[in-house]
Amino acid sequence: MINTIFFDLDGVIVDSEPIHAKAKRIILDSHSIQYPDSIFDDFIGQPDEVFFKHIYENLDKQKNPYQSLLQEKNEQFFELIPEMKLVEGFTAFINEVRNRNIKTALVSSTSTYTFGLIDKHFYLADLFDLLITEKDTERHKPFPDPYIKALQTLPASVDNTIVIEDSPNGIKSAKEAGCKVFALTTSFRTEKLMEATEIFNSYDEIAEKVLF
């Protein structure tokens, strides 16, 4: 019996990964920083601070302070938020989950600042019994700490909890916390998500498994 569902944010609730990547690309290009095209996928599920520290340490020959690049990215992201959409099927799914008194938590490595921007646009916070963001753990995905924190705080049992994720980093985090993971193919192809407990192409498919 599933009585708790943990949701990642990017790629699970909001289709934000293309927006994050676009904002990062604009900032890197504006500073003439060379990067491989795969770099944005490589850091899906990890905080932006980790991304820009990597840029500073490995790719930025000018050694711009990573904090300043992060601030520029946040400003660019804010400008792009109107382009963002909710993941198809999320609203109907979360409403049905709440109607059935299933406990919910948002478990993300995004910053409180970024979540605040998204929440102002989509009013998400009230949909969850618990919010876990970057500030709540010292280590972030792919480490298990965010999901362990959610399990302990809510509290919830791994036996009655599923996690909905969309990235290899998120799947690794949830699995190492002992959770069953349902992967959505919103951000990666199926072959990249094989470590998940099960893989789904839509919320309709998850609903058939969990709610009916």
Rank of each mutant, 00 (worst) to 15 (best):
S30K: 12
D42A: 12
S30I: 05
G45T: 08
D37Y: 07
K85D: 14
Y35W: 08
K53H: 08
S68I: 12
I19E: 03
D37H: 10
Q71S: 11
F51K: 01
E49L: 06
H54F: 15
F77I: 12
A23M: 09
F52G: 00
S38W: 05
K53A: 05
E72T: 01
Y56E: 14
E57R: 13
L80K: 10
E75I: 12
P82A: 11
Q46E: 07
I81F: 10
Q46V: 05
N64S: 10
F52V: 02
V50A: 09
S32D: 14
I55F: 04
A23K: 01
D48F: 00
F43N: 01
Q34C: 11
I44R: 11
F77S: 09
I39F: 03
F52I: 01
Y66T: 02
K85V: 14
N74E: 15
I27K: 00
S30A: 12
L28I: 07
D60A: 07
I33K: 04
G45P: 04
I44C: 10
L70I: 01
E49C: 03
P18I: 07
K22R: 13
H20D: 08
D29A: 10
D42G: 06
I81A: 12
L86F: 11
I19Q: 02
K63G: 00
D29K: 14
E75Q: 14
L70D: 00
Q67T: 13
D29R: 12
Y35M: 04
I44V: 15
L69D: 00
S30G: 07
E83C: 13
E72N: 05
D60V: 05
V87F: 12
F77E: 11
A21F: 11
H54Y: 15
E79P: 03
E57I: 07
S38E: 13
L69P: 00
I33P: 00
A21P: 03
Y56Q: 13
K22A: 13
P82F: 11
I44Y: 09
I39H: 05
I44Q: 06
